[in-house]
Amino acid sequence: MYKFLIISILSLFSVFSTQAQSKQTNKPETALKKSKPDSVKVSTPIFKNLRLDIDVAPVLKNIFAADDTYSFETGLQANLLNKYYPIIELGYGGANHTSSTDIGFITNGLFGRIGLDFNLLKQKEGKKLSSNLILAGLRLGYSKFNYDLTNIVINNDYWNEKTQYDILNESTSKLWFEIVFGVKVEISKNIYMGWTIRNKRTIKEAALGTLNPWFAPGYGINSLSNIGINYMIGYKF
């Protein structure tokens, strides 16, 4: 699955670079046919702009549904040909959680994601280019972090045995991929608001019986799959 994802992302990058090249080479020919002999050739630049997004979903989450996990992130997305949107996302997340069996879990750490979005909004010919975006894409996420498990109690009622121990500073990492869908609307000149919804999937599961963190920064609660939401405010440069 991991190999497939990397190949997919690389293929997507190669597709837009090939298309960009073909546009650069083909466009002047068409322009030449239509234009007058002394007209200036116009080429479309591949790189259009950069947008910096900040996730405000944690603020909304704390207002509507406060819990014991947190995550802050930002993303830098490039616009290539108004179609392809490669992105880098960086963030910091953590949890301070006590289970119903009184086991404590504490973690925090940095995470990163790379990926590519496609703009699904079709631009009509002859009309002004819409600055709003409907994006769908993929991400590859990674986080390396430490965590503590405290107050692990093992009871053996029949033999009247009780064991209590802590596991501190356990180091681990997590690799996952995401299928992302989102909307970005230009609410004012160069200022964007929008959201993304993500289906996150673990690439490699922990072996049965081995320690497995309850929460992973950037991924959320550590199950086989997870849903993530970002509500972004962004500025286009």
Partner: peptide, 12 residues
Amino acid sequence: QYYLSLECGCVV
């Protein structure tokens, strides 16, 4: 010690 999950804890 055989770890099940945060909800279930450990067994031996």
